[in-house]
Amino acid sequence: MTDPRRTEQPHPDFADLDILDMPDLVRALAEDQRLAVEAVVRAAPALARVVEGALPRLAGGGRLLYVGAGTSGRLGVLDATELTPTFSWPPERAVALIAGGDRAIREAVEGAEDDFGAGARDVRAAGAGELDVVLALAASGTTPYVLGAVEAARAAGAFTVGLANNPGTPLLTAADCAVLLDTGPEPISGSTRLKAGTAQKVALNTLSSALMVRLGKVYGNLMVDVRATNAKLEARALRLVCHATGEDEDAAQRALAEAGGSVKTAIVMLRLGVGAAEAVARLEAAAGHARAALGESLLGEQRGEPFSPRKR
């Protein structure tokens, strides 16, 4: 029986994978990963549409909800978790739902991905609403848990995004915005933790990073909302302030201390010669965008308008 999903089909170029010598085996597996990046590049227009649709909702106070099973679910957990230390995104606004619950992060929970109702229940339990953005991932594009989640999310008025590695699949049809990551057959037949998973990781990196840029979490290409929770990040925060302002480390350190460790606030303080309270006020007036707070030009689309349900 032939499975129409490309990710499930044996790759004709790797029929002798198990008898390759070590250098050729490693090279074959590594080189095949390049196709993951190419798939994401092809999907760039769809990813841009996701950012455009998600931005006003998040600017209005909405959340990112990640939904997946197995590898896809774990990649969602990873992306959600990294937003807080990297961009100071509130952890309660990055919710990861995985088939089988938290136990499935570390071990396989057999059959969980086949439960359509569980996906719907998990989304309802998370309180999905009109301001929320649901990123639903399934390499196959047919995972029942994920499809159930999308159905419930759409019923709640959330903006749903389907990311799948097979064209013409139910997930891409069900979601408000479809992102096809067409990576084709895997070198190890059906092992979507390989380039299908890599493509999902790159796509999530791209999506969440683009959103954070547009939400003012980045000044130039500096991650000025980094949360300095350890010595490495404290040193990084100091370097960021020095780079953005041209000040020496002593001045940057004093500003950071007065700003409570906020890189963005320290930059505005030093660039404008104001105190922490004034810098915070300027940032609040600029919706958190350092460039606007500094009086520099800012694309209108970067700040955006908060989403209103009346505009749907």
Rank of each mutant, 00 (worst) to 15 (best):
M1V: 12
E8Q: 09
P10F: 10
H11Q: 07
D13S: 11
A15G: 13
D16S: 12
V26A: 14
A30L: 13
R34D: 15
L35S: 12
A46S: 15
L47F: 01
R49A: 14
G61N: 10
V67R: 00
P91L: 07
P91S: 12
R93F: 03
R106V: 13
R106G: 15
A108M: 14
E113Y: 14
D115C: 09
D122R: 09
A126N: 07
V133W: 06
A138H: 02
G141K: 07
Y145R: 05
V146I: 10
A149Q: 07
A156F: 01
F159C: 03
V161I: 07
G162Y: 03
N166R: 01
G168I: 11
P170A: 10
T173M: 12
T173P: 02
C177T: 10
A178Q: 05
V179T: 09
V179S: 05
L180E: 01
T183V: 06
I188C: 03
T198C: 13
K201C: 12
T206G: 08
L211N: 10
K217H: 07
V218L: 07
Y219W: 08
G220L: 10
A228R: 08
E234C: 09
A237M: 13
A237K: 06
L238V: 12
L238M: 08
V268T: 06
V274S: 12
G275R: 03
A279H: 07
V280A: 05
L283N: 02
E284G: 09
G288A: 06
A290Y: 02
A292Y: 06
G295L: 12
S297I: 00
L299C: 09
G300H: 11
E305F: 04
